[in-house]
């Protein structure tokens, strides 16, 4: 019992530290790639290629004045950033980022935990994630903030539905809710390459982007119309926490897509040697993160009513039809 606790604590600390590092450097990737897409340099002053920029930004966040506007709901105002970052971090607990290795005679699995409902757990956390954004906008007693959070709430509730329904087809094919088993089931052939499953793959990316409020669907922030939306009144580390939550969400979405569709730590078509599993997984995650930045540099923001209509009238029917088609194909034909 005790050694299990110690092992878990060490794993949690290591994963947390690495995740925070990735979050910091995802901001760097975002700024650099967006810069290059817009034919600029991006950050290149702090350190070689601007590599120390995230650290400088973090330090700046710590030393900035923490402004609390008057007439805010003090408790919720302070609670909201924490509520928004905690679910983002908790998602990583069930993500298997590698197989296992032996250290000092102990077999150590490269995941914090493997609960048999891992996938549903992630969906559940996605539902909790909206509170931070909603309360942040409401508590700061600002109309832009309130509008931003109302939009967020409506958007997240709508897209969560399509997201969950899309996942059902993957669950049906894999026959499990545990992410480890889903990854292991893709050892020979990734889920994307299985017949029809590219449809839920695309659906999942779209819904996922809407769920984490990234660019074509970045309604809650919408700089040009809401002046930053829900986090308009936030400054200093509270703002930084919202910011980190956003990027932690992006990373966990990338990790999730990797697990569900891109075969987790498996190389395509060939068996993966043990030492390559973690690098393969991380490579896929960062390829997806790069894609998220790339599409941000490409697509303009949709109008709010278009987003809602797209979610309910296009994605939902496709997701529902997808279940039927995948179910029929894999039970009747295959």
């Amino acid at each position: 019992m005790l050694d299990f606790v110690i092992e878990s604590v060490i794993k949690v600390v290591v994963v947390f530290a690495v995740l925070m590092l990735f979050v910091a450097y995802t901001t760097w990737i975002e700024r650099k790639v967006l810069g290059r897409i817009q034919v600029r340099h991006g950050p290149n002053r702090v350190g070689p290629f601007g590599l120390l920029q995230p650290i400088a930004d973090g330090l700046k966040g710590f030393f900035k004045e923490d402004i609390i506007p008057s007439n805010t709901d003090r408790l919720l105002y302070a609670l909201a950033p924490a509520l928004s970052i905690i679910p983002a971090l908790l998602v990583v607990a069930v993500i298997p980022f590698g197989d296992q290795f032996t250290l000092f005679g102990r077999t150590i699995t490269m995941r914090i935990t493997d609960i048999n409902v891992g996938l549903l757990y992630i969906l559940g956390l996605a539902g909790l994630g909206e509170y931070g954004v909603m309360l942040g906008g409401w508590a700061s007693n600002n109309r832009y903030g309130l509008l931003g959070s109302l939009r967020t709430a409506a958007q997240m509730i709508s897209y969560e539905l399509a997201l969950g329904i899309t996942l059902i087809s993957v669950i049906m094919v894999s026959g499990s809710l545990s992410l480890v088993e889903i990854v292991e089931a893709q050892a020979g052939l990734w889920n994307v390459f299985k017949p029809i499953l590219w449809v839920p793959f695309i659906l999942y990316i779209i819904c996922g982007l809407a769920e984490i409020n990234r660019t074509p669907f970045d309604m809650p922030e919408a700089e040009s119309e809401l002046a930053c939306g829900f986090n308009i009144e936030y400054s200093s580390m509270k703002f930084a926490m919202f910011f980190m939550a956003e990027y932690a969400h992006a990373i966990s979405l990338a990790a999730l897509i990797t697990c569900l569709f891109l075969g987790g730590w498996n190389l395509p078509f060939v068996a993966t040697p043990g030492f390559l599993k973690l690098p393969v997984f991380l490579a896929k995650v960062f390829a997806l993160v790069f894609f998220f930045v790339w599409e941000r540099g490409t697509f303009p923001r949709l109008r709010y009513d278009q987003i809602m209509r797209f979610g309910w009238k296009v994605l939902m029917p496709i997701a529902l039809a997808n279940i039927v088609v995948v179910g029929l194909y894999y039970t009747v034909i295959a």
């Binding site: 290059r36 600029r40 340099h41 790339w294 490409t298």
Partner: peptide
């Protein structure tokens, strides 16, 4: 946008 990525700033 991908092609822009490989042009000189």
């Amino acid at each position: 946008t991908l092609s822009r990525l490989f042009t000189k700033p």
